[in-house]
């Protein structure tokens, strides 16, 4: 039996019901193998975040199915989906989502609370993750005093601390200038080289160019780019 793909969408679609229903994602097939570095690029409103929310189990497809690591996520309860999210998926958001009243270290430790990282491993892992993103000297800083690039590296450290199967990033450089963008993209390269699977969503073709595999999305339709 072969190793299952980390991500496999089978005719997955998402329609937002409402006054005028919006089909944000048309029925889509997508397979992301272990160790892939995939970028999804498309204009604003094309359905990128909708796709990422499905992949991150923050949302459910209205049609088709989604297998994560060979597991059909459609059969899971909400609590099980939360557990899978905590243990197997790392998120990086455009607006960082760091807690302003907590230190850098505490923000990273937050991801160990819900993912079952043994208590005595938590600090060790957090230090290792922050060292990995080059912020060992910022442990007790408040996120408020960090630059945008540093904040996003804290978020990356938080995303990888529980050793997830896949890192999902939604416009990770959307709030960064070109210099700090380069720093974060270098970090993604390194994580990919370490064997992590990445799906990075962006509307910036310079960012998507760094990925090994590029997928274009327009009007809710996915298309492999050469």
């Amino acid at each position: 039996m072969s190793v299952p793909a980390v991500i496999e969408l089978r005719q997955a679609s998402r329609t937002f019901s409402g006054h005028t229903p919006v089909q944000a994602l048309r029925p889509t097939d997508l397979v992301v193998e272990r160790g892939d570095y995939v970028s999804v690029v498309g204009p604003s409103g094309s359905g990128k975040s909708t796709l990422l929310n499905l992949l991150g189990l923050l949302d459910r497809p209205t049609g088709g199915s989604y297998l994560l690591d060979g597991l059909d996520t459609g059969t899971l309860s909400e609590d099980d989906r939360a557990t899978v999210r905590g243990g197997r998926i790392g998120f990086v958001f455009q607006s960082f989502h760091l807690l302003p009243h907590r230190t850098v270290l505490e923000n990273v430790l937050l991801a160990t609370l819900y993912s079952g990282v043994p208590r005595r491993e938590r600090h060790e892992r957090a230090h290792a993750a922050l060292e990995r993103v080059g912020l060992s000297n910022r442990l007790d800083f408040s996120p408020a005093v960090l630059s945008g690039g540093e904040r996003q590296r804290v978020a990356v450290a938080r995303a990888v601390i529980a050793a997830p199967q896949v890192l999902l990033a939604d416009e990770p450089t959307g709030n960064l200038d070109s210099t700090t963008t380069a720093g974060v993209l270098d970090l993604f390269d390194e994580l990919h080289a370490d064997g992590l699977t990445l799906v990075v969503i962006t509307h910036d073709s310079a960012v998507s160019a760094r990925a090994r595999r590029r997928v274009r999305i327009a009007d809710g339709t996915l298309r492999e780019a050469s």
Partner: peptide, 16 residues
């Protein structure tokens, strides 16, 4: 709500 969403993304259950 931002914090709540983040915690959910990090694996928090509704009951947590």
């Amino acid at each position: 709500v931002g914090e709540i969403g983040l915690r959910r993304a990090l694996g928090a259950r509704t009951s947590d």
